[in-house]
Simulated assay, not measured.
Amino acid sequence: MADQADVENALAALVANAIYPNGTGAASVTGQVCKVYRGYPNPSALDADLAAGIVHVSVMAGDRLVRNVTRYPRQWQVVKPVSQVLSVMVQGVSATFSGTCAVGQLAGVLVNEQTFSYAVQASDSPATVASNLAAMIRAAGWIVNYAGAGLTVPGADRFAARVVAGGGALQEIRRQVQDFKVTMWCPSPMVRDEIAPVIDEALTAVKFMPLADGSAGHMVFAGTATQDGGAETSLFRRELVWAVEYPTTLAQMAPAMLFGTVTAMADAVVLGDFQS
C-alpha cells in the first residue's frame, strides 16, 4: 500500500530527475552539485556543503495534519499490465539497466536481506532509475558505486536486481491529502534563483505521480516561501509545498513480485517472505 515514505521517495525521484536528467553520474542542468534526499538536513553537513557551493534539496512531510478525504466505494479495480520495456543485467554485485522507461514498471534491487523498489516515472531513463535506486541503497548505509546506468554494491553478500511490470488489482480502503515540502538550501541567492524554476517546472508538469504500489498521487501546488539567511550566513532557502492526495490500498498480485523465497519440503512447497 502507498505510505508517506512512498510519496516522499517519488517526489525525491522527480526532483533528482529534473536536476540530473542523465543521472547523478553526469553534471546537473544548472552546473551545481546537488544532494537530493528525504528528511531534514544535518546542520553540520549542510554548513560544510554550502561553504563548498553544494546545494541540498530535502523532501519531507509538511506541518499540517493529514486530512482524511475517503469518498470512493471499496471496489477492486483491475490494474492494466504494461509492456516491460526496461531491463536489467546482473553481474556479481553489479546491475546495469537498459531499454526505455514507462509508467507502471517497478525496478528493484536486493542487497542481502534488504529490498529497494522504485516506481518508474515518465521522466526516467535507465540512468536515472539506477541513480535513484543507488540513492535509496546509500541512504540505508551501504557503499554504492554508481556510474551511467549501472550500480555496484561491493559489500553485498547476496545481490539481485529485477524489473517487473504492474498488474493485478487494487482496492482503495482510505484516501488522504498531505502536504509535502521540497526545500532548496543554497549557498547564494543566484544559485537559488537558478535551481528553483527547474524543480518547480518539473513538479508542476506532473498531475498524477506514480507510486510503488501501482496507485498514483494527485499533486496540487499549495504554496512557496523564500528565506534569506542574512549577511552573517551563507544560507538562502526556497520552499515549494505540494498537497498530494494518495490512497491506502489492498492489493491482489499487484504491482508484481520483485523478490521472494521458496522453501522446499518433503510433501509441499512453502512460499514466503515476498517483497514487492
Rank of each mutant, 00 (worst) to 15 (best):
I199S: 00
S188Y: 06
A196P: 00
S234N: 15
C186Y: 06
Q178E: 09
M184G: 11
F221V: 04
R174C: 07
A202I: 06
R238N: 13
M184L: 15
I195T: 09
T183S: 12
L211D: 00
A202P: 03
A216F: 14
R237N: 06
W242M: 08
V191H: 00
D213S: 08
L170G: 12
D179A: 11
R175D: 09
K207N: 05
A216V: 11
M209V: 04
M219Y: 05
A169M: 12
G168M: 07
L170S: 07
G223V: 13
G168S: 08
P210K: 01
V182P: 01
R192V: 11
T204I: 06
I199C: 02
M184S: 15
S215G: 04
T248A: 13
P197W: 07
H218Q: 11
A225I: 13
I199G: 00
V198F: 02
P189V: 01
P187D: 02
T204K: 10
E194W: 02
S188L: 06
Q176H: 08
L211I: 03
W185Q: 02
D179M: 08
G230C: 12
V241G: 04
E239R: 14
A196W: 08
F208T: 04
V244H: 05
G214K: 02
E239P: 04
G214P: 01
V206L: 04
E172Q: 15
G217E: 07
G214L: 00
V177L: 10
A212Q: 11
E239L: 14
F180C: 10
E245D: 13
P189G: 01
L211T: 00
A196L: 05
A202C: 03
A212R: 12
T183N: 09
R237G: 03
Q178L: 09
S188W: 03
A251Q: 12
F180T: 03
L211E: 02
A222Q: 05
A212V: 15
Y246T: 02
E201A: 13
A212T: 13
G223R: 10
P197Q: 05
T248P: 01
F208G: 00
A254N: 03
A202E: 01
G230A: 08
V177Q: 12
A216R: 13
A202L: 01
P197F: 05
D213R: 01
